[in-house]
């Protein structure tokens, strides 16, 4: 995907030169391999730091919340949907934004690659034509097919092309269809379990959680000035590593994302211990689709189902 980099730089420089925007939000090379950092370029010289490849997994919509400047922003499918969510929720105005649409060719899963590596990964090379990723470390070098190490949410993604943009950086990529893959296969697997199995499944899933709140911080939806985990009167959730507290945190965090989550996978990518937090959010996404026919961030005008009322809203859970 490195071919995008030049085009992105070119557009960004032009925007800054013509004074259309005050800053451009993109990615630069991260301090660790496979994790590119979000980077805000405020002049043409800074644009040179921009990169684009398969490690740009964090969500840039996180950096435009409540900003007052004019911002140019790179947006893949999921990023653009999160921008749309921001627009609907009034966190930024459309006039402030110049959205550089990027037809996304999916990101790789750093946890999967780290598991393959025999030691620390020190460098990563991507061959765009062959579709392979080569990871190198002190004593090893391994080449894998990119398709085998995609982030799970990317391999199940139905909206690779941005939904709103001012300019595209490349030709649109073909979308996947539900005929080929079932995005909710994993949710269905969990749904089929009985209550105790489910309980244990999530117990296992969360057993590694260290409550660092990286998932919350990486999430563009989590912009409350005071998060419920930090509230102390009343205290909704304890701050310890107690299994009940951990579960309460994850449950409420997921619930706050109901009808807003675009399954961008930033939470999973940010997680230092590799918990698949999406086991919670994907279920809500599925419910929203089934109950309200709603997919988050596809429109910047329509209000989400949980803040509107319609007589048609499902009510069979009410006695």
């Amino acid at each position: 995907m490195n071919s995008y980099t030049d085009k992105i730089k070119e557009i960004s420089k032009r925007l800054l030169k013509e004074d259309k925007v005050d800053m451009v939000v993109g990615y630069r090379k991260g301090s660790v391999p496979l994790m590119h950092q979000p980077y805000i370029a405020q002049n043409e010289a800074e644009v040179d730091a921009f990169v684009w490849d398969s490690s740009c997994g964090l969500n840039l919509a996180n950096y435009i919340t409540d900003r007052t400047e004019r911002i140019g922003i790179l947006a893949t499918g999921c990023n653009s949907r999160n921008i749309a969510v921001h627009l609907v929720e009034g966190k930024i105005k459309r006039e402030q934004l110049y959205i550089i649409g990027i037809p996304c060719k999916a990101m790789v899963d750093r946890h999967k690659l780290a598991a393959m590596a025999d030691g620390d990964i020190t460098s990563v090379e991507e061959d765009e034509e062959k579709g392979t990723i080569t990871i190198k470390g002190e004593n090893f070098s391994e080449t894998v097919n990119k398709a085998d190490v995609l982030q799970e949410n990317c391999s199940l993604c139905m909206h690779r092309n941005p939904v709103i943009y001012d300019e595209l950086a490349a030709e649109e990529v073909p979308e996947q269809s539900t005929d080929e893959i079932d995005p909710y296969a994993r949710v269905k697997e969990i749904e089929a379990m009985d209550p105790d199995e489910k309980w244990n499944h999530f117990d296992d899933l969360l057993s590694d959680c260290i409550r660092c709140y990286a998932c919350r911080n990486a999430c563009p939806l989590c912009y409350c000035p005071l998060c419920f985990v930090d509230e102390s009167n009343p205290q909704w959730v304890g701050k310890s590593m107690d299994a009940t507290d951990v579960r309460t945190f994850h449950f409420l965090r997921a619930y706050h994302c109901a009808g807003r989550c675009t399954d961008c996978g930033a939470c999973v990518r940010a997680c230092p211990v590799g918990i698949n937090v999406r086991d919670f959010t994907k279920k809500l996404e599925k419910d929203c689709l089934e109950l309200f026919g709603w997919e988050a961030g596809l429109s910047a005008e329509q209000r989400p189902p949980l803040d509107t009322y319609s007589p048609k809203d499902p009510e069979d859970f009410i006695k």
Binding site: V187, I190, E191, M193, P195, D196, E197, K198, W199, N200, H201, F202, R247, F251, A254, Y255, A258, F280, K283, L284, D287, F317, I318, K319
Partner: peptide, 20 residues
């Protein structure tokens, strides 16, 4: 709410909604 609770393994018998 109820759906996610059940998804997590809370028994459906533990949460009730009604309209009276």
């Amino acid at each position: 709410m109820k759906n996610l609770m059940e998804h997590m393994g809370i028994e459906p018998e533990r949460l009730h909604f009604s309209w009276i």
